[in-house]
């Protein structure tokens, strides 16, 4: 078909304007901050890549980044298989199915800082149900003093909060598989494992991609829950990247380094999402003649 003219692009203008104000302008402001040292409205110096160099050599960032990767990958390793398992165990139809859906959705409806508060109290060894139980089992548990306990609590909290999302996504993926696939597998004498491996898992590929991306991005940017629960402690043991950034930006008001930090942060997330996306799409395609 021949293109008559390009006037249709004008229809995109309103969206473009909106996105410009909501994303592009603020992002460019950050870019602006990251290459200048600003003392006042009329007093600024262009510093080039200095903030970037400084930030990349900063211990806090390096340690935070390492912690962040360990955390995000631990989250993915736990939540994705667990979410699939929960989805497989869920009843497919009937009243019980609806009930399960509602119960699973509950943690997703709770505001993030409230989740932190819930676990802060729940994990306390003196008055919290979870803390008291663990202590009663003979474990010397204190998330405020012991880095391992703090990590365990943050992980369990995140698993509690977000596994439902993975489970619900997988559940919808499973529901979309036509009965004929299960019937054919029965005719072919497939074992339950083979049905999972060759029917369910391949059909779940797309929802799993979404789940991995969402959980990676969210966990990589996690802020409120550990901030409320541990405040980043004990020491810096649960201080993740976003918290380091917040301290730098609104605590010390070092806007230049903070801006450089933000952009690096953003690029890391972008890079990893792209990596996950390409690998998973590649996995699905596999070898062809």
């Amino acid at each position: 078909m021949k293109t008559e003219n390009n006037r249709a692009w004008f229809l995109v203008l309103p969206v473009f304007a909106l996105v410009a104000f909501s994303a592009i302008v603020p992002l460019m402001t950050v870019v602006n901050y990251s290459v200048q040292d600003i003392f006042g409205p009329d007093d600024r110096v262009f510093v080039g890549a200095e903030w970037y160099r400084e930030i990349l050599q900063d211990d806090r960032l390096q340690q935070g980044l390492l912690r962040q990767f360990v955390f995000s990958f631990a989250i993915l390793l736990i939540e994705i298989p667990l979410g699939i398992a929960v989805a497989l165990a869920m009843p497919r139809r009937g009243r019980l199915a609806s009930l399960t859906l509602v119960v699973l959705a509950l943690p997703l409806l709770i505001p993030w800082n409230v989740v932190g508060t819930i676990w802060q109290i729940f994990g306390r060894a003196d008055i919290g149900l979870g803390g008291v139980l663990v202590t009663a089992l003979g474990v010397d548990y204190n998330y405020a003093a012991n880095p391992f306990d703090a990590w365990a609590t943050v992980l369990v909290m995140d698993v509690w909060h977000w596994t439902s999302l993975v489970a619900l996504l997988c559940f919808s993926g499973l529901k979309a598989i036509p009965d004929a696939y299960y019937q054919a597998a029965k005719i072919d004498g497939a074992s339950a494992w083979a049905v999972f491996r060759f029917v369910q898992l391949p059909k779940l590929k797309n929802v799993l991609l979404i789940a991995v991306l969402l959980r990676f991005m969210d966990s990589f940017m996690i802020y409120s829950e550990p901030f409320v629960l541990t405040g980043g402690g004990p020491g810096n043991s649960t201080t993740f990247l976003s918290q380091t950034l917040a301290r730098l930006a609104v605590g010390q008001f070092d806007l230049g380094p903070a801006a450089a930090f933000s952009l690096i942060y953003f690029l890391i997330i972008l890079l990893f999402c792209w990596l996950f996306y390409t690998t998973m799409m590649q996995l699905g395609r596999g070898s062809q003649q």
Binding site: A184, K186, I187, G189
Partner: peptide, 21 residues
């Protein structure tokens, strides 16, 4: 007896293949 034990083959109206194989 379940399907697996009946030794019967069935082909359905719409194609069912194991995509990844």
């Amino acid at each position: 007896l379940p399907t697996e034990d009946r030794n019967i083959a069935q082909v359905f109206q719409f194609p069912v293949v194991y995509d990844t194989m």
